[in-house]
Computed example of a mutant assay.
Amino acid sequence: MGELRRPFLLLALLAVALVVGLELGAALLTGGGDAGGALRDSAGQLGVELDDVGRVAQPSGRGTGHLALIDVVALWTTGLFCLSLVVPERVQGRVQGAATLVFSIVLLIVSVVLLIVAFVELTVMVSLFLAAPFGTLAYLVVWGFFPVGDAGVLLGLVLLLKLVWAGLLLLAQPRFVQNKGLVLLALTTLLCTVVLEFLHRLVPVILVSITDDLGALVFAVVAVVWALVLLIGSIPAIVKAVKA
């Protein structure tokens, strides 16, 4: 493939690591704001008068966090590229297949579990929202006031870092563009980020938690697909290592 430019490759690893870190920390970086006033207004529109609603916090959502299920594949792939800088090719060939097999199995299990959790939560959300007025109020208390602005800022930063990651990979080795799997992975993660932002802007704010959870559900499915791709792709490398 040609010589890798180490500084750009290491910077690409840093960029995608920041992406995964931001996505995993989304629950801490977004949500938590006071939504009591908005809840009283919404309750009034439903014909229910609320005197003291106490502390009602904005939800953080699952969508951004579930993006990490996909981006951890990008992190893993970039890490393997970096590993080739310090590990002899023969040794890497023997270790990479087994390590990727373990990684893909773990990713598959985690993705399936989070897929089930997102599906159950989405079902509860929709059921409560449609059970007016008190079910709807219960929905509003827990999920009704998604921090669209904060999530948009975070997703914008994540998208920028992903573009930086892709650009740095090309600077590290222009022939990476010939790697169809890597290109497909980059397009997948960029598209999913844009789709999540679109889902956040598609509906009124009281419904954003539902579309956000729908996005999380889709991302978990995408992660399952990528986990299976890695799992299947690791088998030839393992067989080759065993025969060597």
Rank of each mutant, 00 (worst) to 15 (best):
W76E: 13
Q58N: 12
R62Y: 10
V208H: 05
V124P: 01
I235Q: 06
S234C: 04
G233L: 09
V221D: 07
T64I: 15
L4N: 03
Q92G: 03
L190F: 06
V91Q: 06
K243S: 04
A98N: 10
D34M: 01
V126H: 09
L85E: 06
G144S: 12
G93R: 00
V229M: 11
S234Y: 02
S234G: 11
G37T: 02
L207R: 15
A15I: 02
V102A: 12
R55W: 14
A12P: 15
L114E: 07
S42R: 13
L169I: 00
L190I: 06
L202E: 11
Q58A: 14
G25M: 09
L18D: 07
D52T: 10
P133A: 07
A74S: 15
R201L: 15
T188H: 08
F119I: 15
L115M: 13
G32A: 10
F219M: 02
D71Q: 14
G31A: 12
G181C: 05
A12W: 07
S104A: 14
L185H: 02
L69N: 09
C82D: 03
S60L: 12
L217D: 06
L28S: 09
C192G: 00
L184H: 11
L9F: 04
I70D: 01
A35G: 03
W165N: 11
L159H: 12
A220R: 04
L67F: 13
V106S: 08
F219N: 01
D52R: 13
A186S: 11
F103H: 03
Y139H: 02
G54M: 13
V113N: 00
A17C: 11
V110E: 11
L231P: 01
G31L: 03
G25Q: 03
V148P: 00
D212T: 02
R62F: 11
I210H: 01
R90C: 10
L46A: 07
I109K: 05
L191G: 14
G215H: 03
L137M: 04
L9H: 04
L190E: 05
F198C: 11
L13R: 00
C82T: 05
T100W: 00
W226R: 02
L199Q: 13
